[in-house]
Each structure stands twice: as C-alpha cells, then as structure tokens.
C-alpha cells in the first residue's frame, strides 16, 4: 500500500461524517422545524429577542481576544528568540496550566477574586479595598484570558520562529526604529499566527458557559448559557436551542472567514 493512498483517510472520514456532519444536519433540521416537525422560521425570530446576550458575548469575547493578543505577542516574540533548549522549557511552562482541568482552574479564580479572597486580603494590607471583583463582566473576561491565552501564544510563537533574526537586524541597519521594525516587519510577518490565534481564542470565548456561570455570578449571561438553558433548562426547547446554535455557528464562520482571508497566501503549517 502506498503511503499516499487515499483510503487511509477513510476511518477518520467515517468518524467525521457520523459525529460532525450528521449532528450538524440535525441541528439545522431542528432549527427550522417546530415541535410537530413542520417547517418554521419562528425559532430564528425568537433568537432575535436575545440580541443583547449575543452582543454581550461577542463584546466580551472580543475584549478577551484583544487582551490575549496584547499579552501574547511580546511573550511569543521573546520565546522565539531564546536558545532552543530554553525554548522547550518555556513552552512547557506556557502549556503547564493546561495539564490541569479547565473547570478546576476557573474554580480557583472564584476563590482568588472573592471579597474574602487572597487578593483582597493582600490589598487590605496596603490599605486598599476590599473590591468587588467576582461576579462582574471583568471577571468573566479575566477567566477567558487566563484559560485561552496559551492558544494565542502557541501559534504566534510558531510563526515567529520562522522570522529570521537577520531580517530584524537588516531593518535596524537600514535605520528603522523600534516602532517601525514592529509595525513594518514583525507584525506583517506574524500575520498567520495572529489570525490562527484570534480564531482559537475568539471561538471558545464566544461559546463558553462555564466561565460566565462561575465568575459572572449567573448574572452575566452569555450565548453558551442561553443554549444550555434551552437543552437542560426549565422550558426544554430543542428547536430554539438549535436555532441559537445555528446563529452562533454562523457568527463563528464569519469570524473565521475574516481572519483566514488575511493569510491565504502566507498560511503554512500553522493550523
């Protein structure tokens, strides 16, 4: 059997059809039918009533993505300039939090941010506070940034390791200052990493529900919470829940098409 035999992909193709394509079609079916199974657009119209929740989710996810990008860009750059042996250790440190369960880490933040928590106690020694940090939109964004920042660092780092140090040196030799080097050399050359990073942070942020439940105090409802309520809530409305999921998917697709349009040419081996 030759290694480029297409049949080798068959097991995964079957898997994908069974567990990705078919469920997606079921979601679409439910979104456009009512309880009796007749075609209707009412579900999508009802999703419109939840506009404020969608906007809030998008805004919070956007904030988290921008913060991640700002935090991750310098980290990824310095990582990529380190000696190879050190790079491995530092990369491992970046991934270290991911070895622990996501819910557990978020739960830990609940304790840290609480009014009687360690952060407020420390501030108390300095004569500040106590501040209400938990149960705010800020806490939700913090949770997103904390949980998803590795997904921004890793693709950025990958694309930056490909930037030859001599290119930066050349720019500086030719008289570019720090800002010019950054804007005209480093950022354009790391666009593929930026795009992948944005997608990998934005998409899980916009659909999360555990973070908003734990850090938002249940009052900062996100799309994820809304969808969960339709399936496991009091009203048990699969059709409206599917319509919401569909809208969310369209938003995510739009976002992905936007970012991927930037790097169609440059994209190689990052995703």
């Amino acid at each position: 059997m030759k290694l480029n035999n297409r049949k080798l992909a068959a097991p995964y193709l079957v898997w994908m059809v069974l567990f990705t394509v078919v469920p997606l079609l079921i979601v679409v079916y439910y979104a456009f039918t009512n309880v009796e199974g007749a075609f209707t657009l009412e579900n999508l119209a009802r999703v419109g009533g939840y506009g404020s929740v969608f906007v809030r989710s998008l805004l919070l996810a956007l904030e988290a993505t921008v913060l991640c990008l700002i935090l991750a860009f310098p980290v990824a750059y310095f990582l990529s300039r380190l000696r190879a042996s050190k790079q491995h250790i530092m990369l491992m440190l970046v991934m270290l939090p991911m070895w622990m369960n996501f819910l557990l880490r978020t739960y830990a933040w609940m304790g840290l941010l609480s009014v009687n928590g360690p952060i407020n106690t420390l501030l108390g020694f300095l004569g500040l506070g106590p501040y209400t940090m938990l149960n705010t939109a800020g806490a939700v964004v913090l949770g997103m940034v904390y949980n998803y920042v590795p997904y921004m660092i890793l693709p950025l780092y990958t694309s930056m390791t490909k930037i030859d140090a001599s290119i930066v040196e050349a720019a500086q030799d030719l008289g570019a200052n720090v800002r010019q080097t950054l804007v005209r050399i480093l950022i354009p050359l790391s666009v593929p990493g930026i795009c992948t990073g944005i997608t990998m942070v934005f998409v899980p942020s916009v659909s999360t529900f555990a973070i908003s439940r734990m850090l938002g105090g249940g009052a900062n409802l996100l799309i994820g919470d809304l969808i969960e309520m339709q399936f496991l809530g009091n009203s048990y409305n699969l059709n409206v829940g599917s319509a919401m999921s569909l809208v969310l998917m369209v938003i995510v697709l739009l976002c992905m098409s936007f970012t991927s349009s930037f790097d169609e040419d440059e994209m190689e081996g990052v995703m």
Binding site: G48, G51, S52, V53, V55, R56, A219, S235, N237
Partner: peptide, 19 residues
C-alpha cells in the same frame, strides 16, 4: 424561561437595536 433569561441579561437595554 424567556423572561428569566431576559431578567438575567436585563441591565443591558436596547434589545432590538443590539440585534
């Protein structure tokens, strides 16, 4: 359920415009 989720996302007004 509609009113409950509306209540929880209540502090942000302008539903129709948001959409």
């Amino acid at each position: 359920d509609v009113q409950w989720s509306e209540m929880k996302s209540y502090n942000e007004g302008g539903n129709a415009y948001a959409m």
